[in-house]
Nucleic acid binder design. Structure first.
Lengths: 119, 119
DNA sequence: ATCCCACCTGGAGCGGACTCCAGGTCAACC
DNA sequence: GGTTGACCTGGAGTCCGCTCCAGGTGGGAT
């Protein structure tokens, strides 16, 4: 089972080292193993969890809710229905964002057309 | 030419009064006329500008950039090409957001399917 | 006359999500 | 054996975009 240095995780996930430390501190990331001199060695599981975190974060989920999801995930398989519910609600939210952006984009394009017509 | 009370503008634009005052203070909103006792009376132009602001804000444009757009708008018609450029760039940005959200949404749906398959 | 309500001002405070800093450790390379 | 570089810690600071507050004014209803 391979492990990853901080630099590798930064490279792979796109999070800064400070952000990773912050996520660990607040419990969004499970405690990370250390080597003999105290440096972090991330696991495969950390990486895949960080993929999820990136997805949720980039779709606008607040940290508080990601924390809730993290707790459910740690609590065992009986929380899977709750996790499904949480993700479904979030998916709806993402869809709403998309629809909203598409509508606003229409407004912007109109404005551009108007400006073009005035030139 | 009709004017609008603060309460009416709040109602129509969905911004809070504090936000409107804040926008005026930082120059995102042109100085608002006052009645004899110092209360704001917004114009039709304010309302339509606020519509634009709402659109830009809700598509994630930072205030600094909205300010730049506001300045261009005040500077006269010769800035229309610049405004078009700014809006076009923003529209690209909005499209990128949409694409990104759609991709992330796929990831979330996959995760949901996976959870369902595990139940 | 008094009460309430909408509004005013300047300035402080807040919440979220980091981001930076000082001072220190260790391992490795020259 | 000295320097470099990646990393450590705890805690303070930053940025953005508001949001709230105290104290005050003016106008309309009872």
């Amino acid at each position: 089972m391979s492990v990853y240095t901080p630099a590798e995780v930064v490279e792979e996930t796109g999070f800064t080292l400070d952000t990773l430390r912050y996520y660990e501190k607040i419990g969004l990331l499970e405690p990370v193993e250390r080597n003999s001199s105290g440096q972090r060695r991330f696991s495969e599981e950390h990486l895949s969890w960080l993929g999820m975190v990136r997805c949720l974060r980039d779709t606008g989920m607040p940290i508080a809710q990601m924390l809730r999801f993290a707790e459910l995930s740690r609590a065992g398989d009986h929380t899977i229905p709750d996790r499904i519910k949480l993700l479904e609600e979030h998916e709806q939210h993402v869809q709403a964002q998309i629809d909203n952006l598409a509508a606003r984009r229409g407004y912007i394009r109109n404005k551009i057309s108007y400006y073009r017509s005035v030139l």
